[in-house]
Design a protein around this nucleic acid. Structure first.
Length: 288
DNA sequence: AAACGGGCCAACCGCCGGCGT
DNA sequence: CACGCCGGCGGTTGGCCCGTT
């Protein structure tokens, strides 16, 4: 069962946006900021669905968008992240400043796929084409393994063959544990993916021994706490930073993993080992 | 010059999760 | 706990553009 439409179908324009509509939208957001998309069209004098306004703004009108061709570096980042995340375009876009999920998705479908095919790589599972054909009969494609389904995103843990997903593990070096999704792919080596947005230091933490479902639930609501923390008294905001982590590496038992830090604004990178569960972690404080 | 076909990309659609009541 | 609203996401579509015949 689908939801009812977000707006009345009648009396709304569809299709390509006119220059005048763009200007109305830009002016409205300049004055009022990004607020309630549902009420925006009426307030801005637009005969458009709120979702349409949002999409137009995010994908086309936003001032921080980087227009133009993708660079080789961006290509490689997209390929690497897609091999880990699958079609999670919004997550991939989060690592490419100025690029939108829609743009990356289109670029993937029109350019990168072809590029990978020309390299003899199956874009679905990032395996050599001939090998992936053989593997298809014996193992699930990488997309199946590496994709965190939206439908399962809230599960505290999921075991599916060699995949284990843990949400909000507070023993991460990202002390906030605000949003952490770890993916442990464990055929023989462990391929670890750690994507998180959090606070690198000074954030109240919960010991793993006290970690219970209700605590986990509490952690998921912490973006509100984060906001207060940054804006509250007695906090020197110049010393704080949002921690944007991305870790990838193969690890061997009890040895430092070979995590490769990605991102350009890193000031330090710390790699550690979690002795309990063989999950490697690091955090990468980002200067504000 | 016209017709055709493929590529590209902005926009739409349907669904989902979070949140407030 | 149930329900409805809203924002966000990924998949798909439709129309424009451009190269080829």
């Amino acid at each position: 069962m689908g939801r009812s439409p977000c707006c009345e179908k009648e009396h709304t324009n569809k299709g390509a946006w006119t220059k005048e509509e763009d200007e109305r939208l830009i002016n409205h957001i300049k004055i009022h900021g990004e607020g309630c998309w549902r009420s925006l069209p009426k307030a801005a004098g637009l005969l458009r669905c709120g979702k349409s306004c949002r999409l137009r703004w995010i994908n086309y009108l936003r001032p921080d968008l980087k227009r133009g061709n993708f660079t080789e570096e961006e290509d490689e980042v997209i390929i690497n992240l897609h091999s880990l995340l699958g079609n999670k375009w919004s997550l991939i876009a989060a690592r490419l400043p100025g690029r939108t999920d829609n743009e990356i998705k289109n670029y993937w479908n029109t350019h990168v796929k072809r590029k990978l095919y020309s390299r003899g790589i199956d874009p679905q599972n990032h395996q050599p084409l001939n090998a992936s054909a053989a593997a298809a009969t014996t193992a699930p494609p990488a997309d199946t393994v590496a994709t965190i389904s939206n439908k399962k995103r809230n599960s505290d843990s999921i075991s599916n063959n060699n995949i284990q997903l843990v949400n909000g593990t507070e023993d991460s070096n990202c002390s906030s544990g605000v949003t952490t999704e770890e993916l442990t792919f464990n055929p023989h080596n462990q391929l670890n993916l750690d994507l998180s947005i959090g606070l690198p230091t000074n954030q109240p933490t919960v010991s793993s021994s006290t970690m219970k479902p209700e605590n986990n639930k509490k952690l998921k609501q912490e973006p509100q706490i984060l906001y207060k923390w940054y804006n509250g008294n007695n906090v020197n905001t110049t010393q704080q930073g949002v921690c944007l982590c991305y870790g990838l590496g193969f690890q061997s038992n009890n040895k430092a993993c070979s995590c490769k830090a990605m991102g350009t604004a890193a000031t330090t990178v710390t790699a550690t080992i979690a002795t309990n569960n063989d999950v490697c972690r690091f955090y990468q404080p980002m200067s504000y």
